[in-house]
């Protein structure tokens, strides 16, 4: 999570933006808010992408979250780190998108699948980082398998795993963002790791026929608790 200095800086900026909004100095408010956007944008984009597994969806979710945070900045409480408050908004937006996607997929045919029945995304067509074609193939295969395994995790496990493992947050920080107990966070993390190990184990690819649509197979049980917005 943000260091104390970053946290203080975020809070100061948020207070400034609120004051400028209240005074009707909207240009100044936006200018100040751009600092917050720049500071948290990359992390937000990564979380949204890990969570939604679709770059376009993730892009929209991040934009919506920043816009929503700006318009609801009046409800932001200074005792809570801006990052935590904003991440809650982002995750709730991602959850809404997943639910909406599921509703759509009940009625609309899935997008183009490849020969294996797996939905491809533009990220897999990006230029190679590794020189050798074999290495690139293996690398892409690892990413594909991880992506498929991730979408098979239940929502909570996926959220906790993304925040803990990919974003490097502690159990306490994840607890603050998600509203779950720290012990519950650890249980979700353990279950996520165990399930991923089982899904990514050699030879297990065709045993577990999960939903490859990027939406997971579990039901979204609820929004992140205690969200102010």
């Amino acid at each position: 999570m943000a260091t104390e200095t970053t946290r203080d800086a975020d809070t100061r900026v948020a207070i400034d933006v609120k004051a400028a909004q209240a005074a009707g100095r909207l240009d100044a408010a936006r200018e100040r808010y751009a600092e917050l956007v720049e500071r948290h944008q990359r992390r937000a984009a990564r979380i949204a992408y890990h969570y939604l597994r679709d770059s376009a969806d993730a892009d929209e979710a991040v934009q919506d979250a920043f816009v929503k945070a700006y318009t609801h900045l009046g409800t932001f409480r200074e005792e809570l780190p801006f990052e935590v408050w904003f991440t809650r908004i982002l995750i709730n937006g991602c959850l809404d998108r997943i639910k909406a996607k599921r509703r759509r997929e009940r009625w609309i045919a899935r997008p183009t699948m490849d020969a294996d029945g797996v939905e491809r995304d533009p990220a897999e067509h990006l230029p190679a980082l590794t020189p050798s074609p074999e290495a690139q193939l293996l690398h892409n295969e690892r990413r594909r398998r991880l992506k498929e395994a991730m979408v098979q995790l239940p929502e909570r496990q996926r959220l906790v795993f993304v925040l803990s493992h990919f974003e490097g947050r502690t159990s306490r920080e994840v607890s603050a963002v998600t509203g779950l107990n720290e012990s519950t966070v650890r249980v979700h993390l353990f279950r996520a790791v165990r399930r991923l190990r089982s899904l990514l184990a050699p030879g297990s690819e065709h045993e577990d026929t999960g939903d490859a649509s990027g939406t997971g197979t579990t039901v979204v049980k609820g929004r992140v608790r205690h969200a102010s917005c």
Binding site: R46, Y49, A123, L126, H139, R142, L146, K147, M150, F166
Partner: peptide
């Protein structure tokens, strides 16, 4: 897993 996931996200 962490490295693969991060690379995947950074590529996007």
């Amino acid at each position: 897993v962490q490295a693969t996931g991060r690379e995947d996200a950074e590529a996007v």
